[in-house]
Write a protein that binds this DNA or RNA. Structure first.
Lengths: 206, 206
DNA sequence: TAATTTGGCTAATTACAATTAGCCAAGGAG
DNA sequence: CTCCTTGGCTAATTGTAATTAGCCAAATTA
């Protein structure tokens, strides 16, 4: 990790904790291990560092669903995976996804930072909504739509199903962001939720 | 509304938009219609204004569930209301509650402000979690518990039910906070969600 | 190897925001 | 009617944070 990357990384950590306005360039410099003026050899202003962080999300974007064994971007491709999945597998996938979102160093800091900056300008608000509402709900809507068509799921509005499935996971994520101690209980609730969801909407042979 | 109250009111508006750190006492003074130094006749510091806002939540607290015809604090008292309620009534109550949370001038500003400050100190994090997670979920758990015991609801973990019921409402609330244009779709989804929920867990005669 | 770029530093500079000092007018209380 | 409190004002003051200036050494390149 070169200095520029280190600056981005440490800034993200600080912005996630205190918010952009309450972080001083001196603190960033301290964290990186250089003096404040040296920052300006890499970025032309504090705002410029912030913008670089925002830009970096696009780089990582798409890698998110990764190691969990799903594609995350191509519903048609992923649908096959869910077509004949067991309830236990579903719980495992949901829980892993939750824990990944919660603990991934980059993603969790990014989420917190965006949380703190979301009302500062509409672009950031839109980014937050896209990342943590639109994209997940759209993705899952597609999956549920296919499962319904395939007769694996009871008939229902796929988007509503996606909201019902995802909202508890999202809400508990924000709870754990504020209080890491709530994680155990959150995992328990998510497990129960997914089993219940699967029982409510999945058809018999599951 | 006297000057002190006006200061609190305008500060809340500004803090909700920009966050504490990005609001200057001069801006508060402008909004109130006085000069910055005059603020110090009413509060001993900027932080003091913030603290006064936080304190004011306790004053309003308890009035929240108000006009909606439910008590909001005493589950046993409210449970009777839900005991023989129709699905349509449930949708109406849920939607009204959502719209009240979304549009109430004080509550929505307070929620946004707390959103922006939640990671600054653990006390604020706890307050947020209490207000927007613990209290609603606990209240609804109590209701569902009673409905299950009364045989009106299928047997299930009441807390999980509460999370499943409340999480979509909470999530859509945060979406609408960022994008008021999403309200119509949110109301639609919440209506469908509540009907579905009622169908999933409510017993026949409903 | 000489020239140039890179990235660090210290020491200003600039800007501005929070707060204090001290003055003053209005209005209620004795 | 005078005193005193209240709440406003203008003009400092203080503190601090972002940024710029200008120096320098190491590394890179021609």
């Amino acid at each position: 990790m070169n200095t520029r990357e280190k600056i981005i990384d440490e800034s993200l950590t600080l912005f996630a904790q205190k918010g952009y306005g309450d972080v001083y360039v001196g603190q960033i410099a301290d964290a990186v291990g250089i003096k404040a003026p040296s920052l300006y050899k890499h970025f032309k202003s504090k705002k410029d560092i912030f913008d670089a962080i925002i830009e970096s999300i696009n780089v990582r974007y798409g890698k998110q669903a990764m190691s969990l064994g799903i594609n995350g971007n191509d519903k048609d491709l992923d649908a096959g995976i869910y077509m004949d999945i067991s309830e236990d597998d579903l719980v495992r996938i949901g829980t892993d996804l939750f824990l990944y979102f919660l603990h991934d160093g980059y993603l969790s800091r990014f989420r917190k930072m965006l949380t703190l900056e979301q009302f500062k300008d509409q672009g950031l608000a839109d980014l937050y909504t896209k990342q943590f509402y639109m994209d997940p709900v759209e993705y899952q809507s597609g999956i549920f739509d296919l499962l319904i068509r395939a007769g694996k799921f009871r008939s229902a509005d796929p988007k509503m199903l996606a909201v019902e499935f995802y909202a508890p996971i999202y809400m508990l994520l924000t709870v754990c962001d504020r209080d890491p101690g709530a994680e155990e209980e959150a995992v328990r609730l998510i497990g129960k939720h997914i089993r219940q969801f699967s029982g409510n909407y999945g058809k018999a042979e599951k």
